[in-house]
Nucleic acid binder design. Structure first.
Length: 348
DNA sequence: TGCCAGTCAATAGG
DNA sequence: CCTATTGACTGGCA
């Protein structure tokens, strides 16, 4: 029941509305930060970092929920909000709003965006100010469009913020000849991801040797494999946090006692980590691994474009797998803590 | 060195 | 345009 309606600590209350000031930030469209480097507006020279350090428990889930509402209600985008208010890029904002980590698991740095959101929400003029910025941006954009029509390719001297050089430029095909300053961005094929996920199930923390092998088998750079494991691990971890939050927020009736060691049931929403439908026909290899769950493999090898299964429980087996992998992960840590190298087999 | 938390930024859909 | 996803990078820690 507890939850937290305005669990905001007094600190963050912000009655005094910053008086707009000489807002001359114009002309130079898309000038990076306007007021990111933090001497917080109406707060006696307190920097955000100081506020973060002082602020008490904050309900990150509630905050992001509110922010999403306010943004959509007012037709304000994540990009604008991120760049002007949080000092983050659109992708980061999207991620943050979609799956906020619980406050107590955030580092000081990680808490900063939430404090800023809190501040923003408490400022009665925040929305209007943002809308004004949006207007100005659009105006600047129009101006640019207009001027570019009358002259040669006007290369903006801007700080490469919103620079979409495309559209009208006669560049039939991007047969790039430009000095590879732009690394092509690796895009793993679904099957490659599958293979990596399978490998993860076996060993969340592969040894350099294993990584090397995987890289060779899949024809990927080892750094790509390494990065993939880092990313996957942390994203799985975050998934678990979210389940934790939802479990806490959810059932308010009676004690939600979970007998099992890890309270993390509740239906977790579709996450990017979930594969449409794992199971490879073969997949006969997984015998070792500390934990492995059989999981009745199903046919249904529909490649992607799932969305089918109008009503069934797609996840569950995947949830179980996540838990299994999580256990392996925990074991890995315990072993490390125990100063034991090579997380090899244990006897249970 | 390896790990992690935060992010960035390219991209894929809408 | 906008949002979601995700490989790669950065800084901190041990």
């Amino acid at each position: 029941v507890s939850s937290a309606e305005e669990s905001v600590k007094s600190q963050l209350e912000d009655p005094c509305v910053q008086p707009a000031g000489p807002e001359s930030s114009e002309a130079s469209e898309s000038q990076p930060d306007t007021l990111l480097p933090l001497p917080v507006p109406g707060h006696a020279g307190l920097s955000i970092q100081e506020m973060v350090a002082m602020s008490a428990e904050v309900d990150t889930y509630a905050i992001t929920k509110r922010v999403k509402e306010v943004l959509t209600d007012n037709n304000l985008g994540q990009r604008l909000f991120g760049e002007r208010i949080l000092g983050l890029t659109q992708g980061s904002v999207s991620d943050l709003l979609a799956r906020p980590k619980p406050w107590h698991k955030l580092s000081l740095k990680g808490r900063e965006p939430f404090v800023r959101m809190q501040l923003w929400l408490n400022d009665p003029n925040s929305v209007d100010r943002l809308m004004e910025m949006k207007r100005l941006e659009k105006k600047a954009y129009m101006k640019r469009q207009h001027s570019s029509l009358s002259e040669s390719p006007s290369r903006e001297g801007g700080v490469c913020m919103g620079d979409y050089s495309r559209a009208v430029s006669p560049q039939p095909i991007v047969r790039d000849h430009q000095p590879q300053l732009k690394k092509p961005r690796v895009v793993l094929a679904p099957e490659e991801k599958e293979a990596l996920k399978r490998a993860y199930q076996q060993k969340p923390y592969p040894s350099p040797k294993t990584i090397e092998e995987l890289a060779n088998q899949l024809n990927l750079k080892t750094s790509t494999v390494i990065n993939w494991f880092h990313n996957y691990r942390s994203r799985i971890r975050r998934e678990l946090f979210i389940e934790e939050i939802q479990a806490a927020v959810g059932g308010k009736s009676g004690a939600d006692g979970e007998s099992s060691c890890d309270g993390a049931e509740s239906d977790s929403r579709a996450s990017g980590l979930e594969e449409p439908n794992p199971d490879e026909p073969a997949a006969s290899g997984h015998t070792d691994a500390l934990f492995t769950f059989p999981e009745s493999s199903s046919a249904l090898a529909s490649s992607s474009a799932s969305s089918a299964t109008p009503s069934s429980n797609p996840r569950d087996s995947s949830l179980r797998r996540k838990k299994a992998a999580n256990l392996n992960s925990i074991i890995h840590r315990l072993e490390k803590a125990a100063n034991r190298d090579e997380p090899h087999e244990w006897e249970f």
